[in-house]
Every structure is written in C-alpha cells, then in structure tokens.
C-alpha cells in the first residue's frame, strides 16, 4: 500500500490534453499484463488509477493521461526526471490466452484506446497466431485521434482492419464520420470463433456490445474494461464497489456476461 518512487523517463504529447509518460519501474516492481493499471501519486496533489498503455515486453511502465482534473493535470505536467509515487500493477487483464486462432475485434472509444494498447502490442507482435484482427476506434474529432502513427504502422505491417471514425470533422478529414458501431460489419469476424475487447465510455461500450451481439457474438466472447472511482486498488475501501464486485480487484477487465445484469442497474 506504500507507493514506491518511479522516475519519469520520457514525456510526449499525444493530443491537446493527452500526454504519455514512460516511467522506469521502481526496483522490485515486476512486469504487468495488458489491461492492468497502476495507482500514480503526485506528491502533495493526490493519487489516481491510470492504465498501462505500453508494451508489456519493454520493461517499463507507460501511462497515457488525459488532463481532466487536479491530479491528472499534475501528472500530465511532469517533466523528464520528475518522480511520482507508484503502486501496482493492479487488476485483471485482457485474456490473451483465450485468443489464439480466433478473430479478434478491438473496439475503443476516446482515451479508452490506451488500456487496449498493451493488448495491441501483443497481438501485432505475432499476428499469425490469430484470425482476422480488427481495431475499431471512435473518438471526438480528428485532433483527438490517439496513436495515429502506430495504428497506421500496424495496418501497413499486418493488413489488419484498423478503422478510425470521429464524431464530427471538417474538410481535411477523409476517414469515416459517425459512431464507432458503424464500423462493425459481419465480414470482420466469425461469431462462432471470435473474441471482442472493448474499452471506452460506458455508453459507448453498451452500444458496442449490443451491436456485436446483433451480429451473433455471444456475451461470453466479449470483454470490457470498467472504470469507477478507485482509491485503494485492493478491494478494501469500497469506493469502486459494483454490486458484488470491486472494479479495482476483480476488474477492471470483465467478461461481459458476468456484468450484464449489473450494467443495467442505474444506481450502481
């Protein structure tokens, strides 16, 4: 529960309000699995959960932060060489072990692409181990597209279906405009042998799940990453309790059919 000290090795701007930090892992802190998160503590400001967004094989912790509150703004403002308190890694992971030989659909909304990125690194490291890989990404506008160059590189290298859509655009954007579910098509996967991973705002995930199920994908083949107000990250404080589960400890990655009934409860 006591944060270790990590040093910022590199900082880069992704969009107007999104920054990526590479941290040297503190001594004794091991590697992580795609989908997990760290608690990052800016001394004197506060602590927030931030998903890993780097390649698990690279031996460093990469975090993409959107500056939306006091702590995330302080995190985004950290310069190279600054220190940050770190606890983790915590939480469940995207079930990569279930993916071999299957078509894979990755659906991301906005900053929700960040927690999926470690999964993308692993998928695209050995694409021949999987069926068709589709990455469907929706965001607000062309200026808000995250990791554009990497997505393009993966598309060029592997021929995967990587599609980006935005909610609105001006004339310079030549890609699709509309909701992310518009990118789904029955040609992308075989519902009897496919698995989907979704991360984004909860409304976006609900509609994405619904569209995938309309195309025949069963709930047990869909995995989502949930977000709640996580504080302790070990299931003690109860801040992120979601019915009988704790998002920090049992999640953030859940199989959809295990959460289905809870997601429709408005009070949760």
């Amino acid at each position: 529960m006591v944060p270790a000290v990590a040093r910022v090795k590199r900082r880069r701007q992704e969009t107007a309000d999104v920054w990526t930090l590479d941290l040297d892992p503190p001594e004794g802190v091991g590697t992580f699995a795609p989908g997990q998160f760290n608690m990052l503590y800016v001394l004197g400001v506060g602590e927030v959960p931030i998903s890993m967004s780097g390649d698990p094989e690279k031996g460093r912790f990469t975090h993409t932060v959107r500056a939306v509150g006091a702590v995330s703004e302080a995190l985004a403002g950290l310069k190279r060489g600054s220190t940050v308190g770190l606890r983790g890694p915590f939480g469940s992971a995207w079930p990569l072990q279930e993916v071999a030989g299957k078509d894979v659909i990755v659906m991301a909304g906005g900053i929700g692409l960040a927690p999926l990125k470690p999964l993308l690194y692993r998928l695209f490291a050995n694409p021949e181990n999987y069926g068709r890989i589709s990455v469907l990404y929706g965001t607000r506008s062309p200026a808000d597209v995250l990791y554009g160059r990497e997505l393009e590189r993966w598309r060029d290298k592997t021929g995967a279906a990587i599609e980006i859509t935005v909610d609105h655009a001006t004339g310079e954007w030549h890609g699709p405009v509309g909701v992310v579910t518009n990118l789904l098509s029955p040609n992308l996967f075989d519902p009897d042998n496919a698995i989907a991973f979704i991360c984004g705002p909860e409304v976006m995930m609900r509609f994405s799940v619904s569209s995938l199920m309309d195309l025949g994908l069963p709930g047990e083949s869909i995995h989502i990453s949930m977000e709640r107000n996580m504080k302790c990250a070990v299931g003690h404080c109860g801040h992120c309790q979601f019915g009988p589960t704790f998002i920090c400890k049992d999640g953030p990655v859940f199989r959809y059919d295990r959460l289905r009934d809870l997601l429709s409860v408005r009070e949760l």
């Binding site: 909304g109 607000r140 808000d144 909610d167 509309g178």
Partner: peptide, 9 residues
C-alpha cells in the same frame, strides 16, 4: 450518442 459527446471531458 454524438450529442452526448461521450468522448468529451
């Protein structure tokens, strides 16, 4: 969904 601006702040 677009009006909700789900990807906004």
């Amino acid at each position: 969904l677009q009006l909700l601006d789900v990807y906004g702040r």
